[in-house]
Structure formats: C-alpha cells, structure tokens
Design a binder for these strands. Structure first.
Lengths: 129, 129
DNA sequence: CGGTATCCGCCATGATACTG
DNA sequence: CAGTATCATGGCGGATACCG
C-alpha cells in the first residue's frame, strides 16, 4: 500500500463492501458456504463434494472463512482425527444475501450469453482471414 | 481444464452462478456498475473516480462488462473523441441484486472484523517470542 | 483423516510507451 | 481523450511430499 494520501472516497479499497465482494467472488468460498448451509461436513467430504479444489485451497479458504466467523471448525479426537465444519448464524445470513445473486444468475445467464455472442459477432468478422 | 470425467454436479465450474459470482467478485466490475448507476461517465472520468485502477484494467473490465451487456459504450465523434459509458437495464438489475450484499457488508463488517480479531488472538500468542 | 510445507509455473495485473 | 501494445513481475494456485 502507498498513496493513501487523503483519498477517503467510497471507491477506495478500504470500502467495507469491497472486502465482502472479494469474499463472494472467491472461487470457492461461497460454494463452501452454500454446501454447509445444508449440513455440516468433514474436510475430505467437502473435498469430494467440490471436486476440483486442491487440498491446499480448501484448507486455506476454510481457515479464512473460520477467521471471518462464517463457519465453525470442530475437531473430534477420534482415532484418525475427525473435523467437522458447520456454518454459523452469521455465515447463514451471508448465504442468504447471496441468494438474490444466484437468482439473478439463473434468470439472466441466457441474456448475458446472448449479449456475449452479439458482441463477439461484431468483432470476429473484422479479423476473418 | 481436464477431469471433466462425468461430474455434472452443481458445484462444478460450469455452474452459471459461478460466472456471476466471479463477475461480482471482480475487483472493479461492480464498482464501475455502481458508479454508472448514478450517471453515465466517460473513460477518464471513471479512471479518476476510481483512483487506483490502471488504464489497462479499466479498459479491460469495461470491455468485458460491455460484452456481457451490462453497460453500453457510446463513442461521440468530437474533436478529441468522447466516449460515454452508461449502465443498461440488465446491468441495473444486477446492481440491484448486489444491494443485499452491500447491506450485509455494512451491517456485519464490524462482526466480521471482531471475529478476525478473536481468531488472531488465539493464534498469535502461540508464537509470541 | 486432516492437514502443513515446499517448490514452481502461469496468468493477472501494473508500468511504460505509443497511437488515432 | 480514449485507448492499444509490449514487457516485466508477483502472487495465486496446483502438484507433491511429508506429518500428527
């Protein structure tokens, strides 16, 4: 960080909204939250459910979500240790705030894709060998 | 991309919601949409309003948002060319779907920060020389 | 099982220079 | 004013190996 000269405008990085949007934009975070909304899950259970996430990333994002108070980690001292992750009330409210976005996505994906096709159709012809 | 074996679960990358969440998580995209919600703006006007975005990134994200049909670009053939960006009806609905998230962020930032402090307080002492 | 540690490649981003 | 082109870099994330 440097130039914090004196630019306290709402569009600076210190805007609270930005932090949350980054969270939500995180490739895995919301996915995990939505999974845990249904039921608590164990580490490798999440790993298998998501399919494609690396152990490192899962561990990392889980820690980060726990740090933010969005989920809770509970270690059970069984023979091979068992760890259960569950969503917190706070996490639940965030998940709910994401719902409108989910709905928007489902309702408007077609239109977005159509817009993309239209846009691309305007450009491609220009470079048609 | 590889292992697309046969995992059409909703938690795969092809989920429409993921694309939208990525959009929203984009460092600048939503910021721009929210700015344009108030009024149309020109390129350098946006650049100055955001303060910290590079010319390259602004150009890139604007193009991307235009491609998605979320904003409209209008070039006016003045002496030095003028380009005006304005939000589309579609973009407006997305901006509105983001509002609950904004609200959540503002209402719960304190609690998130508190959770972070609590979490950090548990770990730091362990490595306190 | 549930992680951490390490190494490393690649892509996203920034800085800079140039153009219509 | 509104970009594009090129180059450099750093950090995100995957792969692998190892530990409690």
């Amino acid at each position: 960080m440097k130039a914090a000269h004196l630019k306290p405008d709402a569009y600076a990085a210190n805007c609270p909204t930005r932090q949350i949007l980054d969270r939500v934009g995180d490739k895995w975070a919301v996915l995990i939250l939505l999974l845990l909304r249904s039921e608590p899950m164990r580490f490798n259970q999440l790993r298998r459910a998501i399919e494609g996430i690396s152990q490192k990333m899962l561990s990392q994002v889980l820690k980060s979500l726990e740090r933010d108070g969005l989920l809770r980690r509970r270690a059970i001292a069984t023979v091979p240790v068992t760890v259960e992750y569950s969503i917190t009330p706070l996490g639940l409210t965030l998940a709910e705030a994401v719902d409108p976005l989910r709905d928007w996505a489902e309702q408007n994906l077609k239109e977005v894709l159509a817009a993309q096709r239209r846009y691309d159709a305007q450009r491609k012809p220009l470079e048609a060998a």
